[in-house]
Design a protein around this nucleic acid. Structure first.
Lengths: 242, 242
DNA sequence: CACGTAAACGAACGAACGTTCGATAGGCGG
DNA sequence: CCGCCTATCGAACGTTCGTTCGTTTACGTG
């Protein structure tokens, strides 16, 4: 959707600016390292610079109109490179898709499987942290998530599988915490096994309908608070005292 | 007559078979009536028959690969008509899209704004009914909903607006019931104003991730029950006794 | 049976797509 | 200053797309 407002100016304030690994530069360095074989440009400082321009443009174009609708001529114009020149950075349009997809799933896994120690002993705190961490992550990497999970349906089979597996992994992390909570008695034993599956869409709505929430001036904290309330009031007994 | 035989065993998922208005035939009759001017075939019995074949094929092709990726040659082959012949039923590919979109939004509005009398006095019962009605509707018209709301982001601006407005209307219906419930004291006054917005993704996950729930052998009743539990435990005080 | 109209056909068109590849520019070592 | 390698360019190719339109078929009516 056009309201995404992800500025195509490369010198723009970067996403996840305070966390280097989540900055556009850090993400591009990761991608470059993971695709050394398909990227023919050997000078890393040049390659990262160009990759940044290409990916910013690709995310922007894809997120307003879809990945399939983005032509390499559009991408060429917006990134300031020739259509032929783009092929120094990927060997097919599908590879470009795979680059973005692999990077975002890698970041999700890295962040969500590394909770602070203070939280791992208490399922309630752990659950709260996961909701916060997931929402913060999607906020920092908004265009990446929109691309990876809103476009996923139109991807080629192999790439779609990647997206589905990534979602399944996240759901599994929630399922583990909830199972632990039930075993330790903090959560109701009647808690539906569907809960982990239903947490996901609650988290996804924040970036899927980002424009709507921005229009209504809903803050990330307000959204996050309501989601945590809904979840905990469901699975914690006597949740009125939360 | 060279081309294919017009088999009557159309592998049409006879959606909503018991409710004539929701059957594939009923939907097609509605669409024909609403597009008399752009459909050049004047014999209604022929037109409904062909429309049925075209729409079944269009929904099937779109829902596996996306609407943009569906070529009119694919559609021609699958529907058993020539590419040129298709243009007797729509004047452009976008019009075909609009036909489907308008029909599904019309049905949603018709069904959800007509609750049984027994339910309108009790916000809790009304909310339960709306969840059930919405889920049953999406189940009956699964391919239509998948098309209308999963493809929506790739639609042209005017058509995307249609889809967004339809979602906003549904959200508004939930908001009304919740507001009434708060005013009458059945719902907690602290109930977040975000709740109506967050109910939607809970309902949509049923058809968006339909394959996942089918694989796990989750019944519509189990899903519906969990969703209603989550919602009511959140907004009803002392919900433990539900 | 012949005729006229409704309906469907399918070859053809121009545009746009992803991709290729020979030409070209720029900087660095000798 | 020359020669080489890296990085980029942009015209061109073969496909495929949505759409058009002259032609053919099917069928009710006289």
């Amino acid at each position: 959707m056009a309201q995404l407002n992800y500025r195509s100016d490369v010198s723009a304030p970067e996403a996840g600016g305070d966390k280097p690994a989540l900055s556009m530069e850090g993400m591009c360095r990761d991608i470059l390292a993971r695709h050394e074989d398909t990227i023919s440009v050997r000078n890393p400082s040049i390659a990262v610079l160009r990759l940044k321009r290409i990916l910013v443009a690709a995310l922007d174009l894809s997120n307003s109109g879809g990945f399939q609708a983005m032509s390499l001529r559009d991408l060429s114009e917006k990134s300031g490179m020739s259509t032929g020149g783009l092929y120094a950075y990927f060997d097919s349009k599908t590879t470009l898709l795979r680059m973005i997809l692999a990077q975002v799933t890698h970041v999700v896994e890295t962040v969500l499987t590394d909770p602070p120690e203070a939280v791992t002993d208490d399922p309630v705190a752990h659950l709260r942290w996961m909701v916060d961490a997931h929402l913060r992550l999607t906020e920092d990497l908004l265009p990446w998530f929109v691309f990876a999970f809103m476009e996923a349906k139109n991807f080629p089979p192999a790439e779609r599988r990647l997206a589905i597996d990534s979602e399944a992994l996240t759901e599994g992390l929630f399922a583990d915490v909830i199972k632990t909570g039930i075993a330790q008695g903090q959560f109701r034993s009647e808690t539906s096994e569907l809960l982990p599956a239903l947490i996901k869409p609650l988290l996804q709505d924040w970036y899927v309908k980002r424009a709507k929430y921005r229009r209504r001036e809903i803050s990330l904290e307000a959204y996050s608070g309501t989601v945590k309330d809904i979840i905990l009031r469901y699975c914690v007994p006597n949740a009125g005292e939360l």
